[in-house]
């Protein structure tokens, strides 16, 4: 066997060295730019993807989660999945699609216990305080209850029945003399577990759980609700309206 040319110790000239090195540096720079672009794009979570209970806010979560899947393996219901590359959820991070398998709201929150980094925050003490998303009665044209029927399924499956979802009575204007029982979600209680969406009997659920950033509106920061401010102040914040004398018919 003869010693091969490509493997005999080779002298690199200065020029060669500089070309090779600059190729490396430029390549790395380009790769970095591409990654920065891709990461900006992939930072928005798709509407059907929910984070595990107790997960930090999306931005912090992406900084914290090391994509280990310990939460996924800890979940007894196979709820959680890890996002794959090119999927609409950041590569390797855990999520669930409520329509496929909702969160069963384990009392001992095994996914949280398993998380080594705190991406699923240990600060969540009770699963009932989780805020994985927010259920929204997204289609009032197909929801059976909005047509005056008594489906009520989303209401009955809710682990926080009558707290997270209530049935609010409205007049049925179609029949004119019946009531409708509108499923109404309360954002301070809804955990976003997704059982309602999962259970909705329609072909496509009329109630859907969305990430809170998508589902919730946010008041302009300078806005105040007058009645709340009034309660806080213990009285009206503006001078009393001028009280004109009441003139009732028949009086002078």
């Amino acid at each position: 066997m003869t010693a091969d040319k490509t493997h005999t110790p080779r002298k690199t000239t200065r020029r060669q060295f500089i070309t090779e090195a600059s190729r490396g540096v430029c390549g790395t720079g380009l790769l970095g730019l591409g990654l920065a672009g891709y990461s900006k794009q992939s930072q928005s979570l798709a509407a059907q993807c929910l984070r595990p209970p107790g997960a930090l806010t999306e931005e912090d979560f992406l900084a914290a989660c090391v994509r280990c899947g310990l939460c996924v393996e800890a979940c007894p219901y196979d709820t959680l999945k890890l996002g794959k590359i090119f999927e609409p959820v950041t590569t390797g991070t855990p999520y669930f699609d409520a329509n496929v398998i909702p969160c069963e709201m384990c009392e001992d929150i095994p996914c949280q216990t398993a998380c080594p980094t705190g991406a699923i925050s240990p600060e969540l003490e009770s699963i009932n305080d989780a805020k994985m998303g927010l259920a929204v009665l997204i289609d009032r044209e197909t929801c059976l209850n909005t047509q005056g029927l008594r489906c009520d399924i989303c209401h009955r499956v809710c682990p926080l029945i009558d707290e997270a979802i209530t049935l609010e009575i409205e007049r049925n204007s179609r029949t004119g003399h019946h009531a409708m029982f509108i499923p109404t979600v309360h954002s301070d209680k809804c955990t976003g577990c997704g059982k309602c969406e999962h259970a909705c009997p329609l072909e496509e659920a009329a109630i859907k759980v969305l990430p809170r950033e998508i589902a919730k509106g946010e008041l302009g920061h300078h806005y105040r609700w007058g009645w709340i401010e009034k309660d806080k102040a213990g009285g009206s914040l503006i001078d009393e309206v001028l009280d004109l004398p009441d003139r009732l018919p028949g009086t002078k």
Partner: peptide
């Protein structure tokens, strides 16, 4: 710079 683990995307 980005606040997210960009390298881990790929």
């Amino acid at each position: 710079v980005l606040g997210t683990m960009a390298w881990e995307l790929i």
